[in-house]
Design a protein around this nucleic acid. Sequence first.
RNA 1: GGGCGUGUAGCUCAGCUGGUUAGAGCGCACGGUUCACAUCCGUGAGGUCAGGGGUUCAAGUCCCUUCACGCCCACCA
Length: 883
Amino acid sequence: MEQQMKQMPKTFDFKEAEKRIYEWWEQNGWFKPEVAPEDADSFVISMPPPNVTGALHLGHALFVSLEDLMTRYERMRGKAALWVPGTDHAGIATQLQVEKLLHDEGTSREAVGYEEFIARTWAWKDQYGGRIENQLRRLGASCDWDRERFTLDDGLSGAVQTVFVTLYEQGLIYQGPRLVNWSPGLRTAISDLEVEREEEAGKLYYFNYPLEDGNSIPVSTTRPETILGDTAVAVHPEDDRYKHLIGKFALVPVINRRIPVIADEYVDREYGTGALKITPGHDFNDYEIGQRHNLSLINIMNRDATLNENAGQYAGMDRFEAREKLWTDMTALGITIKVQDIMHVVPRAERGGEIIEPLISTQWFLKIQPLADKAIAAVRDGRIKIVPERFEKVYFHWLENIEDWCISRQLWWGHRIPVWYGSDGEVYVGKNPPKERPNYTWTPDTDVLDTWFSSGLWPFSTLGWPEQTSDLKRYYPTDVLETGYDILFFWVARMIMMGLWFTDEVPFHTVYLHGLVRDKQGHKFSKVKGNVIDPLELVDQYGADPLRFTLITGSTPGNDVNLDTTRVERNWRFVNKIWQMTNFVTSNLEGDSTAGGLELGLPPHDTLDLPARWIVSRLTKLIDSLQRLFESYQYGEAGRQIDDFLWGEFADWYIEISKHALYQGDDDAKINTRRVLVSVLDQSLRLLHPFMPFVTEDLWSFIPHEGEALILAPYPEADANYLDDEAESDMLLLIDIVRGIRNVRDEYNVEPSRKITALVAPGSHKGLFKTHDYLFARLCNVAEISLLPAGSAAPPKAASVTMGDVTVYLPLTDFVDSQAECERLNREKDKLQEQIDRTEGMLSNEQFVSRARPDVVERERERLATLQASADQITARLANLCG
RNA sequence: GGGCGUGUAGCUCAGCUGGUUAGAGCGCACGGUUCACAUCCGUGAGGUCAGGGGUUCAAGUCCCUUCACGCCCACCA
């Protein structure tokens, strides 16, 4: 309060202010939970770690907006708020970037070798790792940077090893040759989740499978090259066409390997030829059939999807080349039938988009079902709540049908699997390398773990687990996990599984899922389409606050956001509007003896005038409503309500009205009005701060306030003493009449600058008009307003505005001709009559009166009375004016 | 083959547990240099809430169904 009143710039220079304010916050340590009292409840969010070498996109902007909102809100509510930031090493993505770099240098990962490649990748990380962090700062993220973590840092790597070793010892991690999804381009296995299945145009190849006895059986395939790995032909056991062939033998085309004809109910008699070639080494279904029938398993492919020696003369060819060649050769043999164009589902790698191949390979797997069971239970019994709730169903469905997780990757960038192989085939699993033995060599496993393996530990590994650190004790479990629904399985489900398994606690009690940010037309952003919107460009152009506010108010949980940049522009204007309001308020405190010593807080309720009682009642209801909205995660609606209040009520009405007291009022009125202005503005800035941190913080510094910074100021709480329904309804009546007068003026083309006079028949509101006639001068340029004595005749040749039992006459002799006025009144009357009919209909309905809630019925009664009063007045006026 | 979402003014979207005349912003039309703001102010036009059926005193809101668009999951060669 003792502060110097600073001179406000004319407009908000967000470029300058954002940088200055962010540094000020950060340097003062205000993002740290330690700013709260030691015994404060904690509120913790683990930030979804962006790819360390990534660049900010709108998805990041959305999560920052939401998570920063939650964090700031809880911080202002006195919680020890901690938002833990960090980055992810993102195995494949990062490795690919560095490989590309090497490629541009004319070398390769293999050429430089493992050590050098890892060194180069760390260098790359150091160079670009800071970029995304600074971009998060630009959005105003109030996370505790001192607690920032990286998935590959020592602590987290230790946690990963501990988890691996523990799961291994528990018998949940096993190694084995299995059919896996193989990415030939990346030359690594990937998990089921990383495979995308797209319906696309392809070909179905029909041919006669030659039998040993000279007959044949027609089959079809979409991948002819896999014929070379066939180990059976299957038919349905009850298929009359083929069942006599069961038990006979077929010969693999060209290479003439002898394979059995088997019976299996999996075969769909209706599809294709009704007979199926079986390739257990390259097809997941065939693999299962092979298991059932003890079929041998032949791998015909190398890691780069060229064919191997098992493919005979086709060895060395690429899979697609071999497909062509084999088909040509089979055609020459006269066994092909036809090639049909079809639409079918093709598995492609999520990253890179290449067609993945099912391939037998030795990998590490996590037996996930025991972990999944715990994760299902936690949501089932409500220890974890997913917002919006409908995703719980999706979550259950996935976990209830979960397959073992292939956790090993044949990459270099990532957590090495803590396994060593002895020269005699011994397998050692441990955090530390095995003891050296004479004449014995240990070879480390060269695979790394799936990136999501380490992300799955994020909520507790970032707090120091497995060490029982003070942070872990104080801040775990965390509270809300906020992220996009697209990684519900990849990340959220795995964190829940790992968290429950290793800490016996849910890692968070609420999962808030946001949607994807798309362009205005609802299209996904894509470089190819050229519709990418760079959030930083929007921040450069409008500032971080408008972007944040747009993302929050334009979205609802779990639904995609179609970003219309005109809304960002509009919210930039909202920022300016708040700036100007504050400028108005502060400039009216200056140059006055009371300014410096203005008492903070609202004056007592009984000393307030009607407009003040109205605005503080409205504010109180807003605060109350916001609390409800925050509790139910309706942040968008919360933001809109603050907007409506500030612009639509405080600025448009209260500030305009306050000018009367400020310019023409006595000292008491001036002081009271100033206190109301400052107080309502102060409260509003607090309410808005979590949504628009920068401009609110800057503005707060210009108004009289108590406390160091807005970021630490208490969030407003509703004070029921300032609720005043009577003031609200009186004020609403006055507002409606002002609007009515403006409307009439506009309809009759009365120049806005022209002062007019009015006569009021105030009905039951005589006092109200007597004391508030000044409003009309200021708000609708009615210079003089006089009360019409009861019973006196209405003026002729005047337009009228009626609200309930109040009628205001505007003697606009130069503008109004009676005929036009009569028409206007008739329109008005018709509209009223329509509403009266509807309301009367309701009230005369016995069922409504007896069954509807009493307050609803009562409201309709009051409404009818008001409508009727209006109608009566208009009817009288019509009779008087129009005969 | 399952599951889910969306469909509200020209455009982008709100509308919570059903309850006044369905809202906002942008855009549009008309009008405004009065001492916070033209990054502004005022007024207005514009919607059979995708279609149909049902429940209810009352439905944009609940149920069923149809259509359109989108998404997720799933082993049909």
